[in-house]
Design a protein around this nucleic acid. Structure first.
Lengths: 252, 252
DNA sequence: CGTAACTTTGATTAGTATCAAAAATGGTGG
DNA sequence: CCACCATTTTTGATACTAATCAAAGTTACG
């Protein structure tokens, strides 16, 4: 089942965040993997599942979330083309959250063991994958701020800006013009609000001329004003990284 | 400035989460470092600072947080004995958040470069440090849920349980009996509430016989009932990890 | 074309914020 | 050891954001 070219979105994303040698690139492309197509709404894995594989998004959108005793749900992250949904599975044994397809989805499923071994053999690949999880951690921190200290309107605007920038970076759309991968109920679950209130806020943003909508597609009239409304500063999405030589020097 | 024994809290925490060979242990203990004492309230670093060092807590408590345009603050994490505050600095260049001492604090400051080189030379150490950041990521996800989908009382109870379990794991106190390292205003900044409301909630928890307080010390009357009130399941604090052999096998 | 999922609307309620000020605590220097 | 000051905690009154409940439209899909 070796179809290296299908892992290109992963390599592209990794290369965007850290330099990647040809050898590393080839090693990643040669990882054993299987392509799986998943319909919208289906679970990729559930809390408590054993972590035997890593999933990489090839097309479509997925989210990770946790369910609470009362049945409410908190979406923790949205994943798109090139994103690893659970790269941490190379090291962890159990899933502490669920993953679900938001749209029709195509993922590459890579055995966690293969990634673990590749990291052991190639410190530079390990570093690159680590950087990838650090960027996700940075996004997670920003979501924490969003939920903790921003009001509904600012929260929604912030999320809409983030989705725009990330889709643009993944080559899927323009930052100010894209198809919303989330329903209003899912937007609510991502922002800690109710679907009804999300609807009000979207209506309000439209009334103020910040966005227009038709069908699921979203249009920002003025990116700058929108970013202002969402207190959005994209720095956290593209952190620069140290370039420590892979070959040890002084420590030995 | 080689005083290896002072990094023991870090090694103890790492060893608690993943097996650590004697050689790895010694390599970590031999990292160059400087001990710094910091008074309560002082900043360790600020958003935008260059990430040249990694800080490890030896005693006392610290937090990381972000400040918003309106002056409000969201605490992102609480760090205690043995915790790395910013291990990710081995790979990242810029801080995207602030770190501040919550109490009188003692930290070991390790050059980021030294950690980066150690990780390159010893994949098993890299793996261990990565696991550490993955656990912090797991805590961050739980905080996201806390802020997004739990009401004030549940949020506070959850945080109090987490602080108990982590202090117990660090050998600082019993899970149900410890000195709160946060003021009520800081609790508010960690839970996305106001100090006034935190006070109400604490009063309520006390009225229901769940906790008693005198001075800053907190006493849980019934751990189980308290964990229930906070929807607290400690799994996320102690995830198990895969044990992939450090020596490459099949991939080469 | 029919049905299920999603969006929109309106009325009411609940939870938490805001503002203001008093009481308690903790640390400091005399 | 006490008096003083700054910080923290507590109390109360009021305002507002967002939740809840219910139902009608609308869209997307098979």
């Amino acid at each position: 089942l070796l179809q290296p070219s299908l892992l290109l979105p992963l390599v592209a994303k990794l290369a965007a965040h850290a330099p990647l040698s040809d050898a590393d690139r080839d090693a990643i492309l040669s990882l054993p993997h299987e392509i799986v197509e998943i319909e919208a709404g289906r679970y990729l894995f559930r809390e408590g599942d054993r972590a035997t594989n890593c999933n990489v998004v090839l097309s479509g959108f997925a989210c990770t979330h946790k369910l609470l005793p009362d049945g409410s749900r908190q979406i923790l992250a949205v994943h798109m083309k090139g994103d690893g949904i659970d790269l941490q599975n190379a090291l962890m044994i159990l899933m502490d959250h669920n993953a679900q397809a938001l749209t029709a989805l195509e993922v590459a499923v890579i055995p966690a063991q293969a990634i673990g071994e590749l990291m052991n053999g190639r410190p530079s690949v390990a570093r690159t994958l680590w950087i990838e999880t650090l960027i996700h951690a940075s996004i997670q921190r920003e979501w924490t701020v969003n939920l903790g200290r921003r009001d509904a309107r600012t929260r929604i605007a912030h999320l809409l800006c983030e989705l725009g920038i990330r889709q643009e970076a993944a080559g899927l759309a323009d930052r100010d013009r894209y198809v919303l991968p989330l329903t209003q109920e899912q937007l609510a679950d991502a922002t800690g609000l109710t679907a009804v209130h999300v609807n009000c806020v979207l209506k309000g943003l439209a009334a103020d001329g910040l966005i227009t909508r038709e069908r699921r597609s979203l249009n920002m009239q003025d990116w700058h004003r929108m970013a202002d409304s969402g207190q959005f500063a994209p720095d956290y999405l593209l952190p620069a990284q140290n370039d420590i030589p892979t070959q040890p020097s002084s420590w030995a």
